[in-house]
């Protein structure tokens, strides 16, 4: 499955549109990570635990979006956007959305 965040896939033509597909996850950090982050907060710098969490939830939401697209019979998702928001204290939502399409090789 090809995923891009532009309106078309360079070198391919869009044969069919299947509409919007999306995936989202809400993740909370666990206490251990919170504690470590609290300590790291004194001196600043990167919070590795949170970076990991962010990467995991991004992968998860893309995976859910892909599953949805596959069910529709698409072979690519174009024009993907990510959006993050904090739902509650200590929990964040990562939302990914895009357009599912079927691609064909261009004859040019």
């Amino acid at each position: 499955m090809i995923i891009t965040n532009v309106e078309n896939v360079p070198g391919k033509v869009i044969a069919e549109h299947y509409g919007l597909v999306s995936g989202s996850t809400v993740r909370a950090k666990h206490l251990g990570r919170d504690f470590m982050a609290g300590l790291k907060n004194i001196v600043g710098g990167e919070l590795k635990g949170y970076t990991e969490l962010l990467a995991e939830s991004r992968a998860e939401s893309v995976e859910r979006m892909k599953t949805q697209a596959r069910a529709l019979g698409a072979n690519a998702i174009i024009n993907i956007r990510f959006s993050t928001s904090s739902v509650a204290q200590g929990a964040s939502e990562l939302y990914a959305y895009g357009t599912a399409v079927k691609l064909e090789d261009s004859n040019e």
Partner: peptide
């Protein structure tokens, strides 16, 4: 001509310190 294209992502979380 373009051979292939795909999505790439990267992320980072940076914390403030007490002085800041």
């Amino acid at each position: 001509p373009i051979h292939k294209s795909y999505l790439v992502t990267g992320s980072a979380v940076i914390s403030v310190d007490y002085f800041k």
